[in-house]
Write a protein that binds this DNA or RNA. Sequence first.
DNA 1: TTTAGCATTCGTCGAACAAGAGTGCCAATC
DNA 2: GATTGGCACTCTTGTTCGACGAATGCTAAA
Lengths: 347, 347
Amino acid sequence: MQPGSSIGEREREILTAIVETFIATGEPVGSRTLARSNREGLSSASIRNVMADLSDSGFLEQPHTSAGRIPTTEAYRYYVEQLSGDARLSPSDESMIQGSLNGAADVQDFMERTSHVLSLISKNVGVAVAVGGTKNALEHVYFSRLGDQKVLAVVVTKSGLVRDRVLRLDIPQGELDSAARYINENFRGWTMEAMQTEIARRVERERSEYDRLMASLEQLYRQGALEADDTTLMVFVEGAANLVAGETDRQRLQELLKTLEEKQKIVDLLSAYLHTKQEAVRVVIGLDDAQPSMRNLVLIGAPARSGGDVMGSLAVIGPTRMDYQHTITAVSYIARLFDKVLNDSSE
Amino acid sequence: MQPGSSIGEREREILTAIVETFIATGEPVGSRTLARSNREGLSSASIRNVMADLSDSGFLEQPHTSAGRIPTTEAYRYYVEQLSGDARLSPSDESMIQGSLNGAADVQDFMERTSHVLSLISKNVGVAVAVGGTKNALEHVYFSRLGDQKVLAVVVTKSGLVRDRVLRLDIPQGELDSAARYINENFRGWTMEAMQTEIARRVERERSEYDRLMASLEQLYRQGALEADDTTLMVFVEGAANLVAGETDRQRLQELLKTLEEKQKIVDLLSAYLHTKQEAVRVVIGLDDAQPSMRNLVLIGAPARSGGDVMGSLAVIGPTRMDYQHTITAVSYIARLFDKVLNDSSE
DNA sequence: TTTAGCATTCGTCGAACAAGAGTGCCAATC
DNA sequence: GATTGGCACTCTTGTTCGACGAATGCTAAA
């Protein structure tokens, strides 16, 4: 925003020092503190000058005259940009993650563990979202009568997602079986989206003739038995308790926690920033325009990929005061692992 | 605990007045405040006397000399006991609950909505837990290969619970089909528990002979494909944000929220208090011996029944300062509705 | 260009203090 | 004998005031 060109080597160094000590201590950092712990022996006065410049450029601000300086959102952005991109996770972290993620029973469990592990390793909020994805390939459908007028519909996709739904229908089991057989034989491997539209088309075409099968199909379709898309939403948010320490204002804290409980908002948030096809980890500093209650929070996320498809996203949400380097590498690592585990036969 | 016999009409009235005003204001209530808003015109001095007695009996305590009195756990218990048992929910509440609970897509969704509605109506934490229950009757199993070495197992119970799990197995689809057919034909309607033990028995018996089917069954069994019991755990906790207002200590608040995120602890908690077969709403005041972090919290819960079976529990968790009457009737109402909706064809 | 020095600004901490709320107890009253 | 008014006493809470410390900005010197 402000002239980034005004940032020379010295400015850079002092700015990152300020950001880091602020992250560590949480208190406004003054020139003396900085002068003491500085590699090159700069005096506090020189540092003051630089700090004044940085304030002018919009990277620092003061809570009040005569307190130290605090990094602005801009400063965090700059700080993150110049972080080393090729850091490695500690072996103990890696094995912890692997240990947690292996042994997941199903996709849902896997997503849950992912959010959990994200939360644990970042000591912040871990989020994992899987969208049923209309581009998921159909594996199998299965209908079963539960009682009078109730039918259970189960849709399984190639990636292992299972979607079940209870419908109010009164179709005998025999017809349900033939409907299922019809779909399984004709549409296995189709994407959910294509399958749905095609079935709708066929039902429409055959409407004039009286056809039992088509009638059943139509009913099933209308009741949403075949939907495995956005309704199949898995949202896991874990570690909300970690935000208690960060947010001092009780009112805000409450709103924040409330927001985190609203799955739809979480999905919106993630899809707003991670809709990208890119594999890279994305760092968004300042979530206020997506969610007002998330002012001065940070999102560090990546798309969750399985094979070539994006099947959701995973992220860490935390205060601006967080360990960026560590969290970024962790998210990146987990995102890669995610892809691997979900595809390899190694699971 | 203390001589309850010492509680006469006047004591009763004053005690409930104290409890109610404390619930309303949150501040220690003194004799003057009480004297002012008292139906019968008792002077503050008389009230002081009664209050002194109640303190001796262990129903009241003082934060410090010369502050008002605060109800003890004992007082809350007493207060709840003498509440009217036949209160009705307001029509708007009832319709809100019904509106929320209808339109649930499946059992999982239904449980989720239940916890949500419990949270909304009590303005506290709503909890709904469904245990897969070994006494659930089997409806259908279904196995499907996903890729090399991966098999998807889906177990459906009569009550509409669906459990899916991905296993690492290398059994061809043909054999999976026969295994599924075998189970479906032989064990439909059995309880999960009985089915499992019987299969284990048969596998054991046939072990000597070489039998493909039994070999497949054994593998499936060993990998837990047929487990629909405690692993099939649905735990929904909603409205944790509501606790922010109640707990002043940040440290405790954090621990509390953390506890609420641990599903296992929630299950333990509920099963500790709601293991009963009784239909009644149970009010537990002071959860500290079940969960230390839940000191001075209150649980108002009921078993979640479907037909004759207990399939889980639902509850509200909140601070001692809550609207007992309203919450109790709400929980009771929802518990009854739960049973009805899940069984009637009306859903 | 850097640094030392200095006046200035402001928030924090602690003490002192007044105000308010409540209690317990005693004596008077119904 | 139960109830009440009065009174001394105890504590918490809020406020004011001053000292202290941390930082700043600016100026002059190195």
